[in-house]
Structures are given as C-alpha cells and as structure tokens.
C-alpha cells in the first residue's frame, strides 16, 4: 500500500498525538479528545459540503451516537465500549437511510432547514422523555474496553483519548481515500453542476444519498466518543446551535484536506476556552469576529494556510485537467 503525503501526515500526527498524550496535562488531553470527537462530526458536515449540501442538523446523528452509547448500558445491558459505539453508528445509519430518502430531494437552504427540523424533533422527543432525564440528560459510566472496566479516573481520560485518536485516524484515512475515489470526485462534480453529472448517466440523488448515510455514520461515531469522554449526554446535542457549531468548525477548517476539520476543532476549542477565561463576558463576540475574519481573509478556511498553491480556484480551462489527474492517484 503506497501512502500519499496526506496519509503519511495523518499517521505521523496520530503517533505524535499519542506520544504527546503521555506527557500532556489532563485538561489538554480532554480538550483534544472532545475536539477530535467533534471533528468527526464535522467530517460528516464536510462530506456533505463537498457534495454541495450544508446540514444544519448534523447534531441529530451526533446525538443519536451519544445516546446509543449512554442507553446501551442501562437499557440493553451492554457495557462493551466498542459495541456501544457500533450500535450508535448502526442506529444513525439506519435513521439516515430513512430520512435520506426524503432529504436528498432537497438542495440548498431547504435541505438545511429540513435537516434542522428533524434534529429539533429529536430534541423535542428527548426533552419529553422524563425517564431519560429530559434536558438534564444522564451520565455514561461503567463501560468496558476489551473486557477491562473503565471506571473513571486518569486512566479513563487516557483510554478515551487513545480510542478517539485511533478512531479519528482510521476514519480520516478512509475519508481521504473516499474523497479521491470516483464517487468522492463525483460528489464534487455534483456540487459544481448537478445537471451535467446527470448527463453523464449518473444519479446525483443516489450518490447524495450514499454520501448522506455515510456522513451520518461518521458523525454518530463522533457523538459516541464524546459521550464516552464527557461521561454525560443530554438533548442539547441535537439542538440547532450545536449543529451551528459544527458548521462553524467546518468553515474554520475548510474542505481542503481531511486534516482540516481536526485542526479547526482544536483551534476552535483553544480559542473558546481562552476567550472564556480572559473575557468571560464577551467570548461569543470573539468567536464571531474569528469566524468573520476567516470568511473574509481565508474563505477556504484555515487549511488554505497550509497549501502551496493559491487559495483561489485555478483558472477555468485548467480545472478539469487538474481534477482528472488528481482522481487517477492512489
């Protein structure tokens, strides 16, 4: 298996993070764990963005993943962490397969609003469920990993960190391959011009559908990991402002590389935590100006700082050539 530059960077960064985790203070490990887990949800958003859809309701799958992990113990008697995560992913994929049938008929703002509506309906259902603690949610504890009980304490923080880094790296690796595969390339083509893709004999809708379902699974994994790390789930995970945060991070990073969401999520968390520390009364404003600055000065996201060529799209005649050679790689 030949690895390209991004993949090498990915492996390198994962190893670096794992090594760093041995010396970093607990708060930082936790911050990075949550950031990486959220970045997985953001990957789900980015997958759809690449295909031209902006989901204002990715919190739906984040929440499904989180609640699956939380409910697996008390309701199904399952405590194996990996099984719980898998249940979350399966549940989200199942849900997405149903919702996707309707949602993929929509584009632009209608897709955004409809995805938001579904997310808010789940929020409503959870708020109504007093046995699940309504808005207070409930704690996630007593799970196991490969037969070992992870009871809390410093080890738990490290175990979840390890799990998250590995999961993030694997997903990122697969996503990177996916983006360069013909389906991944078609997604970008759909964003550019859906009608022309249809002329080529492809069905944009079913590609969108597959992409939507896959994105749901990735996001649910992020939700499950967040639940394990934070030890708590609540309906806010499905609230629209949570989904807004994911879009925020997606734009912060840009769609330039599979690494971008991870970078953006960590930068976002650090900016936020220091903003809260130094300007507790106006930290939202700092976030707002950061976002505005990104949109104005780096419309392709933070990632454009790390790319060699100019952030602007190549001149028109060059574009098709570039994409086709890129697609032939790997």
């Amino acid at each position: 298996m030949r690895l390209d530059k991004t993949e090498l960077a990915l492996v390198g960064l994962a190893v670096l993070l794992l090594l760093g985790g041995m010396v970093a203070p607990g708060w930082l490990i936790f911050l990075v764990t949550i950031a990486l887990a959220k970045a997985l949800v953001v990957q789900g958003v980015v997958m759809q963005m690449k295909a031209g859809l902006v989901s204002f309701g990715q919190g739906l799958f984040y929440c499904v993943g989180g609640y699956a992990v939380g409910m697996g113990g008390p309701f199904l008697g399952i405590s194996a962490g990996l099984v719980l995560l898998a249940i979350g992913v399966v549940a989200a994929v199942g849900l997405a397969m149903v919702l996707g049938l309707l949602l993929t008929r929509y584009r632009e703002i209608f897709f955004a609003m409809l995805s938001l509506a579904f997310s808010m309906i789940l929020y409503g259902v959870l708020v109504k469920s007093q046995e699940l603690g309504s808005t207070d949610g409930f704690n996630v504890n007593n799970w196991t990993l490969l037969g070992q009980t992870i009871a809390g304490g410093e080890t738990a923080t490290h175990v979840v960190f390890l799990l998250t880094v590995v999961a993030a790296a694997v997903v990122a690796f697969l996503l990177h391959r996916y983006y360069r595969s013909s389906v991944g390339m078609t997604c970008e083509a759909i964003r550019e011009n859906e009608v022309r893709v249809e002329y080529l004999g492809l069905s944009p809708r079913w590609i969108q559908y597959a992409n939507y379902v896959a994105a749901a699974g990735v996001s649910a994994l992020g939700g499950g990991l967040t639940a394990l790390a934070a030890g708590h789930v609540d309906p806010d995970m499905a609230y629209w402002t949570t989904s807004g945060e994911f879009i925020f991070i997606a734009l912060l990073g840009g769609t330039g590389s599979v690494l971008a969401p991870f970078l953006a999520a960590i930068v976002f968390s650090l900016v936020r935590t220091y903003a809260i520390e130094f300007v507790p009364h106006a930290w939202q404003m700092i976030l707002g100006f950061t976002l505005l600055g990104i949109v104005v000065f780096l419309p392709k996201g933070l990632w454009s700082l790390f790319t060699r060529h100019r952030p602007e799209a190549p001149v028109v005649p060059a574009a098709p050539q570039k994409t086709s050679t890129g697609g032939a790689g790997a």
Binding site: H281, Q284, M285, L287, G288, L291, L292
Partner: peptide, 8 residues
C-alpha cells in the same frame, strides 16, 4: 458570526 457578535 454577526449574531454571535450582536448578542454580546
């Protein structure tokens, strides 16, 4: 972004 700024 404007919303975040205006809220504060």
């Amino acid at each position: 972004a404007l919303l975040l700024i205006l809220e504060d």
